[in-house]
């Protein structure tokens, strides 16, 4: 009981401290981002899976656990689409006798920030770390993997290619592109999300939960190799 109270007080003081430091930034993000991005954790169970169809953009309430701050600064100034079919692909698909196609005209564009705004927003988003403990518990150390073995894991053994692209223009289009993932995401997040996507997002469209640590490390190392190859 005492420990629970201590935890609640610690979280409350952290929230207050964050708001004191980032008051203006928090207000800016609330005003400009909240219409598309979730800024607080939704009640997934109460909402039901129907809510997934309403999602317009990735949730940002754990942005600090997920994104690299430097990537955020750059991307917010020159946003480029990461998910070829949007955040909820079925909303951007048109059916034809030859199969489904992405309706490009239906995909939204992202607001562009100037450098000062981008840096301040990135700093604020980087402070949103409700799952810091989960990230801190990840023991993954980035390493290397041969291109051939990495691709075998990505394509043949785990079928990541079914939904994700590991090079521009090749692979599935329903998931976010992964040839830019290493530059975009914290390595610990890549490991943790790949290992158990549902624990991060109960409404994720990514299957998972059956890979051992070694298999996840190989996939994370492949994303690192893909990023280094692109440089």
């Amino acid at each position: 009981m005492v420990r629970t109270l201590e935890t609640i007080l610690a979280i409350a003081s952290l929230v207050v401290a964050t708001e004191m430091v980032f008051g203006a930034e928090a207000e800016f993000v609330q005003e400009n981002c909240a219409s598309c991005h979730a800024l607080t954790e939704p009640d997934f169970e109460a909402l039901g899976i129907e809510a997934r169809a309403e999602r317009k953009a990735p949730p940002l309430y754990y942005a600090g656990d997920k994104y690299r701050r430097d990537w955020l600064v750059e991307w917010l100034q020159a946003p480029e689409r990461i998910r070829p079919a949007g955040v909820y692909p079925p909303a951007h698909i048109s059916s034809s006798p030859d199969g489904d196609e992405i309706d490009e005209a239906s995909l939204p564009t992202h607001v562009v920030l100037d450098q000062s705004q981008a840096e301040r927003v990135a700093d604020y988003l980087s402070s949103l770390r409700p799952y810091q403990e989960r990230i801190d518990s990840v023991t993954y150390e980035p390493g290397s993997i041969s291109w051939r073995m990495g691709q075998m894991n990505f394509v043949k053994f785990n079928n990541c290619i079914g939904c994700h692209q590991d090079e521009p223009g090749y692979g599935g289009v329903s998931g976010p592109e992964l040839h830019t993932a290493w530059d975009r995401l914290r390595p610990e997040f890549i490991f943790s999300y790949t290992k158990d996507p549902v624990s991060w997002d109960p409404h994720t469209m990514m299957p998972g939960g059956d890979l051992n640590d070694g298999a996840v490390e190989k996939l994370a190392n492949y994303l690192k190799a893909v990023s280094e190859e692109a440089e």
């Binding site: 199969g99 489904d100 079914g162 939904c163």
Partner: peptide, 14 residues
């Protein structure tokens, strides 16, 4: 639907 298609006929965007 991403793989099996919105109408289920197997022609998804992936």
């Amino acid at each position: 639907s991403q793989c099996h298609g919105l109408n289920g006929a197997g022609g998804g965007i992936n």
